[in-house]
Design a protein around this nucleic acid. Structure first.
Lengths: 100, 100
DNA sequence: CGAATATATCTATAATCCTCGATATATCGA
DNA sequence: TCGATATATCGAGGATTATAGATATATTCG
């Protein structure tokens, strides 16, 4: 972790919907219905469910999630036509360690 | 800590100079000269020293520091005509706890 | 008091971000 | 293969932020 990467992460965490998404993904089963195809949450939640919960457009949420993945906050796993996103606890931990 | 406050903190941490300032203030004695009047770093560092080190204008740094104080990242102590800023470890810890 | 110094606030402009709709790409199912 | 579904990317308009200079306020000192 360094100032540059920390700043990129900070940018992701500078907007309410994105912070909210990161919070929701702490406990996906509490905030999202189980996916009709994949019954578990092992790889997180698909874009559509997050989009519906956030109430923003599909393109906006897709961009958010991609950016959060780029700076390491999220991990994406593709299953067929679905992209699942879950938290990357390693990066989050490294970031908090950097701040303290 | 809640999503709203966390987002405000995230905004402060979304810009390189501000992240850098928070890092410098971890160990003021390593990054700043001792103040000519106050010889210790108990209350942090004065605006002018931070401004010179950051290489940005006085008004910019003053605004940054004030905003960082408003969301609880920094603590300000006034000594005569100088404003000293130091980290507010309580808020920083609460923020990292919120993220994890 | 008046000058000097340190900081805060105001105002303005350029840069960046937010968010969307439109469109492109990828995958699945009939 | 074609149509439907899920996601990604592009392009644009409005909103916010970055940063500076000018000015205001507060404090010290002669």
């Amino acid at each position: 972790m360094n100032v540059k990467l920390a700043t990129e992460i900070g940018k992701c965490l500078s907007n309410k919907p994105r912070v909210q998404i990161l919070e929701w993904l702490k406990e996906p089963e509490k905030h999202f219905p189980p996916h009709e195809t994949l019954k578990h949450f092992n790889d997180g939640v698909c874009v559509t469910y997050i989009q519906e919960k956030a109430g923003l457009s599909q393109s906006t949420i897709s961009t958010y999630l991609t950016n959060m993945e780029k700076c390491g906050l999220l991990i994406m796993t593709r299953h067929g036509k679905w992209s699942y996103f879950r938290r990357n606890e390693d990066t989050i931990k490294a970031y908090t360690k950097f701040l303290i």
